[in-house]
């Protein structure tokens, strides 16, 4: 931490020094002082060049990031146009009665995703994270989504496998579905729901 603090303070200390160098060199206006003034002036020029170069590099990096973002958006629009797009998300609330192991998603009786959760990922969901488990295309019309959740029932360590189904209408816009795992406190059991975000 101390080293970090020192490093963080280094640039402000160096800046006035670099700024002071030309001023010091400029004071003796006489010709004999010119030789002495030359090296700091050259150093300042070098430092200026480096600064410009650094700014250019930073600007190019920003351009690359912007381009990458645009490309990602374009790719997404091209591969998953809004009129056919369907996105499925997973969220988890509390998790006192269930430790998530995997989720399988079937759309119209065809398995589109089987996802195994590591302890870290399950923990991230418990902390409020929402995961996009599937992004695909569907034709306009009626569809059925079935999700299977496997894991351990808590506090008794027993295998758990539950399913949830939703029949939904795919309209012209994008469709968002959320697979929600919550605790049903009254029954001391987990609950698996699918929410259709209109």
């Amino acid at each position: 931490m101390l080293a970090g603090a020192c490093l963080a303070q280094a640039p402000p200390a160096a800046t006035p020094a670099a700024g002071a160098a030309p001023a010091a060199g400029a004071t003796p206006a006489a010709g004999d002082a010119a030789a002495g003034a030359a090296p700091p002036a050259a150093g300042a020029a070098d430092s200026g060049d480096f600064k410009t170069l650094d700014q250019e590099v930073q600007s190019m990096k920003k351009d690359v990031i912007d381009l990458n973002k645009d490309l990602f958006v374009l790719e997404e629009e091209l591969l998953f146009p809004a009129n056919t797009q369907v996105a499925v998300y997973v969220s988890m609330d509390v998790g006192t009665f269930f430790a998530l192991d995997s989720v399988t998603v079937k759309i119209d009786n065809k398995q589109v995703k089987n996802y195994l959760y590591t302890a870290r990922e399950a923990d991230a969901l418990l902390k409020g994270g929402v995961q996009q488990i599937y992004l695909g295309n569907l034709k306009v019309g009626k569809h059925e989504l079935v999700a299977f959740f496997t894991g351990k029932g808590l506090p008794v360590d027993r295998d758990y496998r539950r399913g949830a189904t939703i029949n939904f209408d795919k309209g012209v816009g994008a469709k968002y579905l959320e697979l929600k795992i919550t605790d049903k406190v009254a029954k001391h059991q987990p609950e698996f729901l699918i929410k259709d975000w209109e």
């Binding site: 192991d101 995997s102 996802y115 195994l116 959760y117 590591t118 302890a119 870290r120 990922e121």
Partner: peptide, 15 residues
């Protein structure tokens, strides 16, 4: 990849 290990834990290479 993510796979189930013999002890039951799921392991992901990128982790």
């Amino acid at each position: 990849f993510t796979l189930k290990a013999s002890d039951g834990a799921n392991l992901r290479l990128s982790e």
